[in-house]
Design a protein around this nucleic acid. Structure first.
Lengths: 360, 360
DNA sequence: CTGAAAGCGCTAACAG
DNA sequence: CTGTTAGCGCTTTCAG
């Protein structure tokens, strides 16, 4: 008969009491120390040693139960882009696990039809985005541009980090890449290949990222003294089909472009489809570039030249940012500063871009 | 002055007490009901209604603190297929949320190179797959076929559900689709289009799903009295590149097939690439079919005819299966039965398959 | 089959 | 700066 009280499993994990006993202080002092509250004289060392000695790890369950925090973060994403964000999700989950947090994930928007104007269940979200339920919110693009959602977050006054290419509204926390610079770089790559007649497929006009990417394109053109034809600007909606249609239009005109820079990889894949339909070979007769480094970018042929973004890291950083913000809030450290964490992107040159065709 | 006691935030979340009050029973009865313990007379209905009315959701922290369970499930997947499983992941997460569980997600295998034989960190996994840490494990393909992993799970004696097309080893819980039937159906679709010279690209030989899909293909051929040429069977590894290579070989031979059925959508996409490379138009000169209904299947052109599987539902069901198994264990209900939950697939006929070419 | 009592590990509130 | 007290929401005893 094993004399264990409850679980048949191994020995009980160390608690704050064990640490207190070992260090010769009260449990409360240990608790404060762990939470970085006010300062203790010299006992700080004793406690640290005690923690190590008994191998103490806080019990989230208990913390959540007693403290004001929920130890939960909520990530909100658009169903439409779920496959694209899986890496980011994994990154956030692993970061959460590290700091003893739980990650809730909520998809919004209609999965079947993205035709409708606003299929977002704002009320449902509002009930989730609440300090009583979560300590913080992570907003993924493109819903991080949604004004209604932004209002909800501000009204609920819950800490929030946006994963986006630009600052916005009242949300101070952000992690992202420099979309402008990335688009600028990509455009220069195209220009360095000899292209002078470039086209751009923008994303939806209400997404800030679309604008930034477009601006980067325009700036690079301007800085190289190249002309930008109005007819070379199309607007898609980040879907393969829209990329296909826009490209069909682009290639149907006289003096058609020799390089198409799509605002994202989906549309770039669509551009590839269009080229195929018209029997225009890529990259020999047409260069196509994407943006995002999405899985699809290496599932098509030719593989897409694109801007790769560190999705996993972005997921991790967003959680860490939220956590450190929370700590500062707790300590009362003033923290009304905008914090943007800008990560490095990578220009991935693959097979979909090449020199400008010589035969005209 | 708002009279709230602790948090300045909105109203407190519903507890078991609220439910008890609403239903007119003691909290204990509610607790028992939630845990499926012994049966209550008629109050079972009242409690159910009360739960809905007050919008009650169990507090994991509290449960974990008092009970012997960890209220955590662990999902293990292969990094390589992360994008494909995002839907499944979301399904599992939402199911977990519903039953008050926390979902841990662990990716295994090298992300960069899938060349190495076995880049799986078995020791790391072993320390996670432990009753003391998680109440159950969900194994995704293809790692759910990994013998070492299967051994670990059995040794740790932790409840486990596999998402797979076939039963295996000592793991009793499974959710999946009937891969054999699906492949059989797809093959018949191809045959009904008039094709008589069909090829198949198998997945890795050590995956049970590969074998089943192949068997379905072979059976359909046999049942239609069609001949199967050895040269029309190729083996890929579920990547675009392997699909491309296999197809190149397939189309390079004399008397080449008019339809290619790839074991998954990635390889089917590769087949499309190969056709494009050889200027063979799909579906006019060649039909291509995939399997999985992965995101990529509608990102390519022409869109892939494929077998769609209800990934989200599979994710949900896997959690529910684990949960009900746990309940039965707790109740002492004998439960050494194999439980397979087989979900419906759908044959999605899209643009990559068509009638057999008339011009030969 | 049901209820009451106790306690899981931790932290907010209040004293010292 | 520190300790005491109480209680978070739930489940495990243990009585009815």
């Amino acid at each position: 008969m094993s004399g264990s009280r409850r679980r048949t499993y191994s020995s009980r994990a160390a608690t704050i009491k064990d640490v207190a006993l070992e260090a010769g202080v009260s449990p409360m002092t240990v608790s404060r120390m762990i939470n970085g509250k006010s300062i203790k004289l010299s006992s700080i060392d004793k406690i640290k040693k005690a923690i190590k000695k008994v191998d103490y790890q806080p019990n989230i369950g208990a913390r959540r139960l007693s403290g004001g925090r929920t130890y939960q973060f909520l990530m909100i994403f658009s169903n439409q882009y779920i496959a694209y964000f899986s890496e980011l999700l994994i990154g956030s989950m692993s970061a959460c696990k590290k700091i003893g947090y739980n990650l809730l994930v909520e998809g919004v928007g209609d999965e079947e039809s993205d035709k409708k104007d606003s299929p977002i269940d704002y009320d449902g979200i509002a009930s989730l985005v609440d300090r009583a339920r979560v300590d913080g919110v992570i907003l993924l693009p493109p819903i991080c541009f949604d004004p209604v959602l932004l209002d909800i977050v501000r009204d609920k006054a819950v800490p929030c980090v946006r994963i986006a290419g630009s600052p916005a509204r009242d949300i101070n926390l952000r992690v992202g890449c420099d979309s402008f610079a990335a688009a600028y770089d990509m455009t220069n790559h195209l220009i360095s290949l000899g292209h002078t007649n470039l086209a751009f497929i923008k994303g939806p006009v209400n997404y800030a990222s679309s604008a930034l990417r477009y601006e980067g394109f325009v700036s690079a053109l301007r800085d190289s003294g190249l002309k930008l034809y109005d007819s070379n600007i199309k607007i898609g909606n980040y879907t393969v089909d829209s990329g296909l249609e826009c490209t069909l239009e682009l290639l149907g005109q006289e003096n058609r472009p020799t390089a198409i820079f799509a605002g994202d990889d989906q549309m770039a894949a669509g551009a590839l489809c269009a080229a195929q339909k018209l029997s225009i070979s890529v990259p020999e007769q047409l260069s196509v570039a994407g943006f995002d480094g999405a899985p699809i970018s290496h599932s098509v042929w030719p593989k897409l030249t694109t801007i790769w973004q560190p999705m996993k890291t972005m997921g991790e950083k967003s959680v860490e940012l939220l956590d450190s913000h929370l700590r500062q809030l707790e300590l009362g450290t003033s923290d009304n500063v905008r914090t943007s964490m800008i990560l490095d992107y990578e220009l991935k040159i693959r097979q979909s871009t090449g020199s400008v065709p010589t035969t005209r």
